[in-house]
Design a protein around this nucleic acid. Structure first.
Lengths: 148, 148
DNA sequence: TATTGTTATACTCTATAACTATA
DNA sequence: TATAGTTATAGAGTATAACAATA
């Protein structure tokens, strides 16, 4: 006895869509030599330098021990800078380099170009509303989305 | 130097939204005595009986070894039926019970009631378009979303 | 003593391989 | 022999605990 009435849970729909888009993103990023975490780090640093690795980890909702290898690799490749703070030599000042910004821009352009394939299924009105709502919800703090 | 132009990746926005909604769902489901996988199984069986555990696992994109414990528990609690197929006693015929359907309905009502809190931020027009687009995209096969 | 970053360890989830029973 | 289901094992990803350097 099929059911039919009602809608699927919002969580099920956005979850599946998010996983599918992430799966689509992986090969694009790998073509640019980036892991998902490396890409997330470059995106975060592109909005400005960060004063400590802990702060960066918190900003991207990662564990601080989890991004160390990522930072090592990005630094070795000259995509980020990681220098001890002269005022407090325990903390590392993190910033993206010009080369890192170039790579980030190229990767993101490729990612979004691919996403256009999906958005092209929508009408102009659907596309505009969908993206606006998504951006509004994305701007909300986590607690407003996930609750107390 | 902040950037500002362009939009966040679709994958980042839907991914975060999906994870947040899933996180919001967990305590609601637990209040009904259900894990996420148990809930997914009940939802899948509600659309009709399934002829084998392998088929069910494939339908919900899970490994067949992963759902065994879930099925054991659901069966012990009388929420599903699992009987050997008389025609081929290797396969198990799976179906949801009336009690299982009651629990599923109660759980889903609670889940969606919570999701309404988020949707109430939208205008009627935004809400209608957003849900319609989401359902359309959700109905697409995985390959259309994630690509080749 | 407290904190940043790092390394080492343990845990959770998932997938793979080996096994039983039916065919 | 091949397949459905189960159990046992191993792997990936992640978090926790212990450590070194600096404050």
């Amino acid at each position: 006895m099929a059911e039919g009435n009602g809608r699927p849970d919002l969580a099920a729909m956005t979850g599946r869509l998010g996983r599918a888009l992430a799966a689509a993103e992986v090969p694009v990023l790998r073509a640019h030599g980036l892991s998902m975490w490396a890409y997330v780090v470059l995106l975060a640093l592109d909005e400005g330098p960060v004063r400590s690795q802990s702060a960066l980890a918190e900003a991207i909702h990662a564990d601080k021990t989890r991004i160390i290898g990522v930072l090592d690799d990005l630094q070795d490749r000259g995509l980020i800078e990681r220098v001890p703070d002269p005022g407090d030599r325990r903390v590392r000042l993190l910033s993206i380099t010009a080369e890192g910004r170039r790579l980030r821009d190229a990767a993101q352009a490729a990612v979004q170009e691919r996403e256009e394939r999906l958005l092209s299924r929508l009408t102009e009105e659907e596309r505009a509303t969908f993206l606006r709502v998504l951006q509004d919800l994305h701007a909300l703090p986590w607690e407003d989305l996930a609750g107390p």
